[in-house]
């Protein structure tokens, strides 16, 4: 099952990449397509933040992951490097759990 998912995902992701290299650049003149491709990642990434931070199966929970998210947001707001933000976010959750 995992192999099937990996190979299908690889085919789909490579298909999009290769299609972009192959189609004429005039497709970008279609504003609907361009806007959709620009905006869709924002919706999906935002949803992934929610499921990763608040999801526990089908339940919504508040736990140490929320502290990670807040710390991460502060880091990105202060324009700290991605690496620093990830380490700080991980450390925040680890600390909260160690203290709890």
């Amino acid at each position: 099952m995992i192999w099937t998912a990996v190979l299908l995902t690889a085919a789909g992701c490579f298909g999009f990449k290769m299609a972009g290299w192959t189609v004429p650049s005039s497709v970008l003149e279609r504003p609907l397509l361009r806007r959709g491709a620009t905006l869709l990642p924002a919706a999906l990434l935002s949803a992934l933040v929610m499921t990763q931070v608040f999801g526990e199966g089908r339940a919504l929970v508040l736990d140490a992951r929320l502290v990670s998210l807040v710390v991460g947001a502060l880091c990105f707001w202060r324009r700290l490097p991605f690496l620093v933000a990830l380490v700080a976010a991980a450390a925040a959750a680890a600390l909260v759990r160690a203290l709890a």
Partner: peptide, 15 residues
């Protein structure tokens, strides 16, 4: 080690 929290923050960083 807070990996689950870091993954959430990583998605936020990409967003």
């Amino acid at each position: 080690v807070g990996l689950d929290g870091a993954v959430g923050a990583a998605f936020l960083g990409l967003l």
